[in-house]
Design a protein around this nucleic acid. Sequence first.
DNA 1: TGAATTGTTATCGT
DNA 2: AACGATAACAATTC
Length: 284
Amino acid sequence: MPELPEVETYVRYFRSLLKGRRIVRFVSHWPKQIEPDFATVERAVTGKWVARLHRRAKYIVADLAETRRGALSARSAASGAPTGAGHLLIHLRMSGRLEWSGLRPAASSHLRAALHLDDGHTLWFCDARKFGRIGFTRDYRATLCHLGAEPLDRGFTADRLSRLLRGRERRLKPLLLDQTLVAGLGNIYVDETLFQAGLHPLTRACDLKKAEVRALHRAIRAVLRKAVALGGTSFDWVYPGGEMKEHLRVYGRAGRPCTNCGTPIAALRVGQRGTHVCPRCQPL
DNA sequence: TGAATTGTTATCGT
DNA sequence: AACGATAACAATTC
């Protein structure tokens, strides 16, 4: 369940290791995960340099350059401008994981793909459920244009959120999970955000008062920032690091007392998703 | 053994 | 037409 904070943690960790490196070989053990197909991606990335590693929503984006010079130039490092050699995209979906170099991950770690680099190091892509995706695109902005607002960007203001909610009859939970509106939240951080904002997941978006929209906006940013600062939420065999698990208030705490009022946390299903709520702090 | 788990996309109904 | 709800899908773990 890597969501925005976990993906951001990976990007920060791997950025300095990958930047300026040349990809000498690309291997896939499960080609169905490669988009549009293995041969295309292999041809597109082999021999290219990594100019920049960044994140858009839950996607990891590696800007590629044709030359070492291109990878190190200020132009390709500048935010935005797509480099001539296109972009490698990685989405971890449910159970994707990245590991760095050292020994080849054990068979039990579900190794699915590898990016071998010119300095002898390797980026390993592991994924138990094989839902993760690795892709190549000429222009990542076009490929990811369906994604909505980046919640930690400066441009994501309470006004912007208010406009997104205006006239929406949808419940808050499915709405916040919709990546075309706000991009990066998943099941864990939506539940945590709604608790922090004191809002019930079944509340209709259009029913929010101004102050509630502001509270929701503040909660989205506070929860995500805290999770990023703590390196994300560790999740048994899926995501190793991260201290955020010790700070979750509702997710995975069904039946245990609310840290705020002592009422047992309730578990319900909203839009086929496991949902956690404090019935007292988040009244409907 | 089968229920639970996820983000994304396609499809159906209003 | 736009929106919302729902199902299907990828595959594995416990």
